Simulated scan of single mutants.
Amino acid sequence: MTTGHWRTFIRGLIGIAIGAIFLWLALRQTSLEQVNTILSQSNVGWLFIALGFYTADLLFRISRWRRLLSEVKTLSFQSVGIALLVGYAANNIMPARLGELFRADFAGRRYQLSRSAIVGSIFVERVLDGLIVVLCLVLGRLFVSEQALLNSLTVISALLFLSIFIGLWLLSRDSRQDWLARLPPAILSRIQSFRQGLSVMRGNGFGRVVNLSLIIWLLEGITFWSVLKAVNVSLGWQEMLSVVGVASLSSLVPSAPGFVGTYQYAFAFTVSLFGYEPARGIAAATATQIFLLGSVTLVGLGIYTYINLVKPKKNYKI
């Protein structure tokens, strides 16, 4: 096993371990029987409404990534959608968000793009998502009584994502960076390709990417709200800010496949802040994973199987 494979293996083990710990912490607050009872009594109609908003969410995510990749290569909406859905499917079945690397590799091979440039565009996605999640945490904190864990989570995540955003923004600048010239050619080439993936940050198109991100997270919030309604949890928009902030932040960190464990704990923690039993939060997280993430996983795997087994000769066409 090569060094790269060992790193991937270890990262995967760490993600599974993190998910297992958070799942244990979530289930300590309730019982599986109670969660199963809530799931069996859930309102399927609200789950279908959630699926509709989640579908719209994915369409806007495809549009955003297409805009980010346009600085590298112009691709059709369908082409970008194929890569994103396949990548999301991989993310849901691989631990520690390794699906993001799979997405970069898949798009690079299929559309003859630099993998480093694609990784750069994905970095911009994740950091923008992180900043919006932090904004939700900050605003949601105004409507939650004193909570030390939520305060710490807000401060740490704000510092982290702001630091990363500033670093990416500086790296994307056109100004000369003499220190790069001192690097070995192979590393320098990868950094320059990575910077190409960040190039949208220095253009007028970045405003459009930010606007798309805001729409995406509005749809994400409505999706979560609908799933919570399905398990008889009714929250106002102020309270949903905290749910979106905590639950979404849990999906941005390396965890088990399908965010198992981290999602359960995040939902249980946030709904308990507003007087609901943790079991309803765990049920909402599980319904999200089965009904929403499961759907995109099936679609992504179906697309991947089709283009690799049914039409393997078209693997590298745009």
Rank of each mutant, 00 (worst) to 15 (best):
A148F: 01
V231T: 05
T37S: 07
G205T: 09
L198H: 06
V127H: 00
Q289M: 04
L235H: 00
S40I: 05
V127F: 02
L75W: 01
G108P: 04
I164S: 07
R173V: 03
L59V: 14
M94G: 05
R109D: 10
A287D: 06
F161I: 13
P257E: 06
V260G: 12
K73H: 12
F143N: 14
G81A: 09
E100V: 00
L235M: 06
S157M: 07
T55F: 01
A117P: 00
L241C: 03
V119T: 07
F194V: 00
L23Q: 13
E146K: 14
G236E: 04
A266K: 12
V80Q: 03
R182F: 00
P254M: 05
P254I: 11
F274C: 02
L235C: 11
R109E: 13
L25F: 05
S248C: 02
W6A: 15
F259G: 12
Y111G: 12
S250M: 06
Y265P: 10
A256D: 04
L58I: 08
L27W: 07
I282W: 14
K313F: 08
L168I: 15
A283V: 01
L249A: 12
S213N: 10
P254N: 15
T55V: 03
G108W: 02
A268D: 15
N151D: 15
A83H: 03
A186R: 06
F274Q: 03
T30A: 03
A230Q: 02
L292R: 04
I93G: 08
I187F: 08
F102S: 10
V299P: 00
A287E: 03
S145I: 01
I166D: 04
V144F: 03
R28Q: 15
G120L: 02
A96D: 13
S251G: 08
H5W: 14
M201D: 12
M240A: 04
L252I: 08
S163L: 15
T270C: 13
Y304A: 14
I62E: 10
A83E: 07
L149P: 01
F194G: 05
V124S: 05
S272R: 15
S234L: 11
I164A: 12
V244M: 12
S213A: 07
G275A: 08
A181C: 00
D105P: 01
L273R: 13
F224W: 12
L183N: 06
I187Y: 10
G203H: 04
V210E: 05
S251Q: 09
K313A: 09
Y88H: 06
Q147E: 14
S116L: 03
P254S: 13
S295N: 02
A83C: 03
F165G: 12
L168E: 05
A247F: 06
K314L: 09
S42H: 11
Y54K: 02
G245E: 05
E239L: 05
L214A: 15
V86R: 05
T3C: 11
